[in-house]
Structure formats: structure tokens, C-alpha cells
Simulated assay, not measured.
Amino acid sequence: MAELLSHVLVAYVCFTVASWKLDWLTKRWVAVGTIGALLPDLNRIGLFVSDASLEAAFGVPFRIGAIHTLGGTLLLAGVGAVVVADEHRRAFGVLLAGGLSHLFVDALKVYADGAAGAWLYPVTWLRHPTPNLYVSSDPWVLLSAGALAAVVASIDRYRTR
């Protein structure tokens, strides 16, 4: 859970800072971007539903792990953009940017074999070497993301007065 919250906080920081320069990036779109940061972790549904049951439901071969890739994020951002009542293209871009922030942060964490996951699928199956900057279960990751988000939120509140 801490990792999921840290992804949301990182996206909040990125979108809020970007909103200081981009007039169209209102609080609504910052919220949509933070939701986009949750998209890659929808692969956690695999804890409750098997790939075989999803294959039976959809009628096509399905791997739930593919959601935590560039292709899965593109697909989910497209579905999310269709759900938005207006401004589908902007919703797609903001959801995708949130998902990409999630994938980028995950590309920096420690993996046992020293290579990140194949998050660039369907572009490539390449598993790039990771800089091993953090372990996702370390408390300092959440604490630093929370502290940074608190600083940005207070600056943003001061700017809107």
C-alpha cells in the first residue's frame, strides 16, 4: 500500500508543479493525473482473478501482468479517456502521463537480478539495468514522497491566495 500511495504522491507533485506553468492544467486535471498513476497497479487484480478466468470472460488470451507495461497503460488510459464526458484527448494525455510517471518511478527501484521489468512492452522486451535507487517497501520512500507533496501543497496553497 505504501508503494501505491507514493506513486500517487509523486504524480501529485509532478502535476501540481506543472500546473503552475500550464493554465489548462487545473485541479481537476491534476486529480485525473494522479488517477493515471494508479493505472499500472491495476495488475493487482490478479490477486483475486486468474488469467484463465479473464480469458474465459473476454474470449481472448489475457495476461494480467501486461497491465503493468507501457502497452497496458496506453490501453487503460484510452479506456479512461472514453469514460470522461468531455475533452477525451486531454484526458488520455493526462492519464497516460500519470501512468508513465508510475512506470518511470518503478524503473528505478531495486530488482533481485539487477534488471527492471519489461515495462516497455509492446515496444521492446528489453529489461534495462536499474540504478537500484530504492526498495519499494522502505518507509523512507513514502516519507520523502509525503514530505515533498506537503511542501508542494503548501506552496500551491500560498500561490492560489
Rank of each mutant, 00 (worst) to 15 (best):
L120V: 01
V83T: 08
V152K: 03
V94L: 03
V105W: 07
D138Q: 14
L100A: 04
A91T: 05
A91N: 02
G93V: 04
S144F: 09
A115K: 15
V135C: 12
G78N: 06
I67F: 03
T69F: 01
A118M: 06
I67K: 02
G72K: 00
A77Q: 02
L76I: 09
W125T: 14
V83N: 05
L148P: 03
G80P: 07
A147L: 14
H128Y: 13
L96R: 02
V123W: 03
V82A: 12
H128R: 13
V135H: 14
H68V: 06
T124H: 08
A149P: 00
V82P: 06
L74D: 06
V135F: 09
A150W: 13
A145D: 02
D106S: 10
D106A: 07
V94I: 10
L108F: 08
D106P: 04
D113T: 11
D113I: 09
R90P: 03
E87F: 13
P129H: 13
V135T: 11
V82C: 11
P122S: 09
L126I: 13
V82M: 12
G93S: 05
G117E: 10
L96I: 03
R127T: 05
I64K: 02
V141Y: 08
A118L: 06
A77G: 08
L142V: 09
L126A: 14
L96S: 00
A81N: 08
A97E: 00
R127S: 05
A97S: 07
I64F: 01
Y121F: 09
P131V: 07
A115S: 13
V135I: 12
V135N: 12
L96C: 01
V94H: 02
V151G: 05
V123G: 02
P129L: 11
A85I: 12
K109Y: 09
H68M: 04
I67L: 12
T73H: 00
V84L: 14
G78H: 08
V79S: 10
V83W: 10
G146T: 08
W125K: 15
H128T: 13
H102L: 05
G98S: 02
R63N: 05
F62W: 11
F62V: 05
L148R: 05
D113P: 12
G78F: 06
A85D: 14
